[in-house]
Design a protein around this nucleic acid. Structure first.
Lengths: 232, 232
DNA sequence: ACCTGAACACCGTTCAAGT
DNA sequence: ACCTGAACACCGTTCAAGT
């Protein structure tokens, strides 16, 4: 009844899912291929049948996470399309917070969906009236803007002794000398734990939705103005 | 003549310099505390007298790299001050390209210079006329904008088999089906190796200065408009 | 105070061997 | 084709010991 050779118990997709689970559980810094294999009940080296390296596995995980980011076309409304793209990217990263640093910082070069993303951005810029001479710089601007917010929002806080670190930071924030930093002292109640550098709760537990919305509008308004200017 | 106990041959500053040298030579992914110790001619464990962990050493390296980023005050010209801040940040990261991902993605919470940075940004926003209710979101927007560009520009390309990877990407770019990606196909000559996702030369060897300049102007113009709008 | 030295519990990856 | 199994060359970190 049993076959001569068992059908493979593994698959690339299966491994990627296990990797995403490990990532969610232990974070990027403590992510290990051996743990993924353990979770799957196979030898570490079995993974190498499907992926050439640990990095390739992580790249595949990034590609998986990024699948739903490119929005459907919105003919005639480039601002809405961009807004949607930015929002989807952030949501995709919120589902896999530990991937944000990877995608933002180094993985933007692998997946095959990437060409669709490029095409979408170029079409949005064209619709906005961007002249050909400005297409490279504004395309690059959009890509940076796309990754920037979620990368910082979801950045991991120090992994070792997080409570101790949080207390230290709060103490230092309380002790800020108002004479040296008047604006900071004045706005501290608004900023504390709600803003970069002055926060101790990670972004996945304390979303920065309002700031994200403002950020998106700043970028879009800036693009519109820069395009108008480039057209002369 | 020789003292009873030799004065320490090491120092935190000395170790940080060795770490920066190692980083420049081998990159972040292959950075190891043991190599730093080897370069200094001491046992790996000697480093632990000065730093509690590898991560703390890297944080110190980031703080070192970030020292010169906060510009002197520019009373009455917040746009100039911001432009200078962005430029200095990028230049600091260009001096230590392998730190860009760290600083951008996770280390924005340690150094003591940080409070000066926060104060400067808040004062710039105040000068721009930002109302108090919008200060948090626009402060966060500025911080993201600050780190975003250099983080992506200097992102490392795949460490394993970089030439093979570069050739693959170039091949895939050449094979882009113009029917599926018309805008991409049309602008490809401009974009190839000069834009994110479509480049195979790393940003430290091929700077993206024009795109950076455009990016900065987009952000500043967007801030100005958003502030004007927030004032009603 | 500052560093040596040994040891622990891990890694990613290679290669040969099994089925 | 797909996985086991052993082995290699590393890691970061802890702890005790030296001076």
């Amino acid at each position: 009844m049993t076959r001569k050779a068992a059908r493979p118990g593994l698959s690339a997709e299966h491994i990627v899912e296990a990797a995403l689970a490990q990532l969610a559980e232990r974070g990027l810094e403590r992510f290990s291929l051996r743990d993924v294999a353990r979770a799957l009940g196979v030898y570490p080296t079995a993974v190498y049948w499907y992926f050439r390296s640990r990095n390739e596995l992580l790249a595949a995980a990034c590609a998986h996470a990024l699948r739903p980011v490119v929005p459907p076309p919105r003919p005639g409304d480039w601002q809405r399309w961009l807004r949607e793209l930015f929002t989807r990217y952030r949501q995709a990263m919120r589902r896999h917070p530990h991937l944000a640093q990877l995608v933002g910082a180094q993985m933007l070069s692998n997946a095959s969906l990437d060409f669709a993303l490029v095409e979408g951005i170029l079409q949005a810029l064209a619709q906005a009236g961007c002249p050909d001479e400005a297409i490279v710089e504004l395309y690059n601007t959009v890509v940076v803007a796309l990754c920037g917010f979620a990368t910082l929002e979801l950045a991991p806080l120090p992994a070792e002794d997080p409570e101790g670190w949080a207390e230290d930071l709060q103490q230092r924030v309380r002790d800020i000398p108002a004479a040296d930093y008047p604006a900071l002292a004045r706005h501290l109640p608004r900023l504390a734990d709600r803003s970069f550098i002055l926060r101790w709760t990670p972004g996945d537990r304390r979303p920065m939705a309002r700031s994200f919305a403002a950020y998106v509008e700043v970028v879009i308004a800036g693009l519109a103005q820069r395009i108008a200017q480039a057209r002369g």
